[in-house]
Amino acid sequence: MTDISVTKVEKLGVIPTDDQLGFGKIFTDHMFVMDYATGKGWHSPRIVPYGDFAFAPATIVFHYGQAIFEGMKAFRAKDNQIAVFRARHYLNRFNRSASHLCIPPIDVEEVRSGLFKLLELDKKWIPGKLGTSLYIRPFIISTDDYIGVKVASTYKLFIILSPVGAYYDNGFNPVSIKVEDKYVRATKGGLGQAKTPANYAMSLNAQAEAHQEGFDQVLWLDAVHRKYVEEVGTMNIFFKIKGEIITPELSGSILGGITRQTVLELAQSWGLKTAERQISIEEVYEAHAKGELEEVFGTGTAAVISPVGELSWKGQKITINNNQTGELSQKLFDYVTGVQYGTVPDEFNWMDHVNSTI
């Protein structure tokens, strides 16, 4: 494995207290960087002080958007151990996104090694309060100094770290969601299954309008029939109907969430009936009308489990579980976060431990 050089910052930053944390606003002292060039491959892995970087105005990513990113979390677990949740799963998904954007694949073990070295260096930034974590943001951008639509021949990979609190201001309380019937986000054969900036840029109009109307998030429907549920802007979505846990299948326009996968594995291990299939918004509303819609919740790295208390579709609002957190949502949240913080045994080997303590 290539040696990773380290250049330490001259003056360490001020580490915030746990109650000062928001989400994605504070960054640690260092970052990991690696370069790619056609014919040379990924090279020069290094850890350098966190800071601005300069690119030419003609840098190709600014014009044609060839870029991907990931989102992971590290935790200060029991006995001050440093643990990362499902690190290889996230880095393998990083490679799946890369394949959709014609970006050269990374060596997962090399990047994992660089990440762990970065975590070791900036470990004092990992907050310790329950509900806090260190958010990990790997990303790759194309860097050719060229204006023209083509697959780039040079790239940069970065990993930056951010100590964070709860993703939503209301914490673990149920969120309200608008079912989007005006805009579409992705379709099969497009970018929906890749974690790339364009996916999220496409969601901004709908999200802004939903916020103006008092909703926390947007639930997207399929782009062809405009009836089948896909995902929320920052989460996969689950419905508990007559005891069955249903989530839309990964059909080419939905991001395959690692927390989604975790919930399915966990629910199946508990003997719950699960299904990955098409589910229409009409079916959801009909189940509610019959009293069969027991819970709705989202899953994602940032919020882990996010109970949904209200859905609104074409002006028709329904309330789920009296706008209270459901029993299953709470159980899933408690179990997954318990494993992450080391208070629940890691029976599924989800946690990847850095050989260090804080």
Rank of each mutant, 00 (worst) to 15 (best):
D3I: 13
D3M: 14
S5L: 10
V6F: 15
L12D: 11
L12W: 03
G13M: 01
V14H: 12
L21W: 09
I26E: 11
M31K: 08
F32M: 11
V33C: 09
M34D: 03
D35Q: 11
H43C: 06
S44Y: 01
S44D: 14
P45Y: 07
I47S: 03
Y50A: 04
F55H: 07
F55N: 10
A56N: 13
P57A: 09
P57V: 05
P57H: 04
G65H: 00
A67Q: 09
F69Q: 02
M72I: 15
F75D: 01
F75P: 01
R76C: 14
D79L: 07
N80T: 08
A83M: 10
L91Y: 08
N95W: 01
A98W: 02
S99T: 11
P105H: 05
E110L: 14
K117V: 07
L121C: 11
D122F: 05
D122C: 08
W125K: 06
T132K: 04
T132G: 03
S133I: 04
S133T: 05
F139R: 04
Y146C: 10
K150F: 02
A152Y: 05
L157T: 07
F158G: 07
Y167I: 10
Y167S: 09
D169N: 14
P174D: 12
K182C: 05
T187W: 00
T187D: 00
G189P: 02
G192W: 01
G192K: 03
N199F: 01
Y200N: 12
S203G: 13
N205I: 06
E209K: 14
A210D: 13
G214F: 07
L219A: 12
W220L: 08
H225K: 14
K227V: 03
E230W: 00
G233F: 01
T234Q: 08
M235L: 12
I237W: 05
F238T: 09
K242Q: 14
P248Q: 11
P248D: 13
E249P: 02
G256H: 11
I258P: 06
E265A: 12
Q268P: 06
Q268R: 15
Q278T: 10
I279D: 05
I279C: 09
I281Y: 12
E283L: 12
E283Y: 11
F297R: 06
T301D: 09
A302D: 09
V304F: 07
V304R: 04
P307L: 12
S312I: 08
W313K: 04
N321E: 10
S329I: 07
D334M: 09
T337A: 02
T337K: 08
V344M: 06
P345F: 08
D352A: 06
